[in-house]
Design a protein around this nucleic acid. Structure first.
Lengths: 240, 240
DNA sequence: GCCTTAGACTGGTACCGTCCAGTTGCGGCA
DNA sequence: TGCCGCAACTGGACGGTACCAGTCTAAGGC
């Protein structure tokens, strides 16, 4: 075989994941002990423990001290507390999104925009407005603000073909946390026209402020989803 | 000194946390390297790395490979991907909720209810309906279904004074994951009356299926929030 | 047949060592 | 003065070992 690349613990992690997904290790069955696994995969215990720890963090496995390591029940959502962009999420659900860039401008920030991005008023920023369709019909409309350092030089072609988070990470930005608020609103006349719903139809309004690992605002987004076509879905885990 | 107890890596973890919280290590400042820390705390590098890895998972620190370990910006939300109940969440926000139990019944499950709880149709289940007010005005109405083994024997007094999750955990149930879907809907005449809004007002509908660590359904809830008084808020972290 | 108990597990904690590949800063050379 | 290369340092990835404290089981005593 062509000698799989990458760190051992990652390869081990994927190997175990496959054994679980293939059904060889069904939910709630116990994994071999760490010492048997050492012999099986010919790696040190530290490596085994690292791979298992990662899978526990992902929720794929769980440990019962002094009893064993077990396969967790399958997850019901791929996104467990993970920050994903609008377009990324659509893609993760296996849908094909068509993105139309309505506008893409670089300009000095107005007061409200500067506040949202936590930069000085008048600083250069980038504004992106997009309409995303799935299966022909509009799904959501969003307006995203980015600091000039992040969004500078993007083309409509890039923005319509790649998730914003991909473009952001390409700039070398390490994404950290994203703070979202979700509310229900009535569609205004303008929103109704854009999303092709009747005025007053219920919409999901999602605001998100994304920061890099240093806490600097990287993106401030406001999206309106057609509620007849979209449900916000997330999985949360109880802390021990 | 009285020899602090517990595993070394936990003590180290807390020691570092205190140095951060005291302001000795401000946000975005770099931690000493792992090797200097070994000498400083007189522990092995593996222990240092374990403590740092835990703090990274918590979001207190972040690493830049081959550059260093840094103090993260303080968190913006207490609930980072944590599963919390409706009442718990209100409490966490520092609000005082008045809960009115509209009904509390034990009965055989109807087909749809049995499906939601993943039990056999006709199995005994418990239904709870509650109206929660904050500052006099209604905030949300919710209907929760529970398997008989979980909700059996609860009194209206208990249900109105304690979060459901507290009651569930008192039964010895280990909560695992909760799957939520959030959508925007128009208030029906009945919902409008209960929540004291006009008919057709936008509401946030939150459905949640909570499971224990073994994957068994523990609770199936459906809540309607007044959108003029409530925004769903959550913080997510980007996976590495 | 039942109960006790010893030993073979389990994961948890902690130590040691080694090598690797980027980053960074500093000193020296042009 | 300015550029460049190298040495020092960083976290990442492995390997090995040892001991601990509970759990589970199966053998042995009653």
């Amino acid at each position: 075989m062509p000698a799989p690349q990458g760190p051992l613990h990652l390869r081990l992690r994927n190997a175990l994941k496959e054994r679980i997904q293939s059904g060889e290790l069904p939910p709630h069955s116990s994994l071999p002990g760490e010492r048997p696994l050492m012999a099986q995969y010919n790696v040190s215990r530290a490596t085994i423990r690292q791979a298992i720890a990662e899978l526990c963090n992902e929720g794929v496995l769980y440990r019962l001290p002094r009893r064993g390591t077990y396969v967790a029940a399958p997850k019901f959502s791929a996104t467990l507390g993970e920050l994903v962009g609008f377009a990324e999420e659509i893609h993760q659900r296996g849908l094909v999104a068509e993105t139309t860039v309505m506008s893409l401008t670089e300009a000095p920030a107005e007061v409200a925009e500067a506040e949202a991005l936590e930069v000085a008023a008048g600083s250069p920023i980038v504004r992106v407005e997009r309409l995303v369709r799935v299966d022909q019909a509009p799904l959501f409309y969003d307006r995203t603000l980015l600091p000039h350092s992040v969004g500078r030089g993007w083309t409509p072609a890039e923005v319509s073909s790649l998730p914003l988070y991909t473009l952001i990470e390409r700039r070398g930005v390490q994404l950290g946390e994203g703070d979202q608020t979700i509310e229900a609103v009535r569609a205004t006349a303008r929103e109704a026209a854009r999303l092709q719903v009747s005025e007053g139809a219920p919409l999901l309004r999602v605001r998100r402020v994304t920061r890099d690992v240093d806490g600097r605002v990287v993106e401030s987004a406001l999206a309106h989803y057609r509620s007849d076509r979209y449900q916000y879905r997330l999985t949360l885990r109880r802390q021990r």
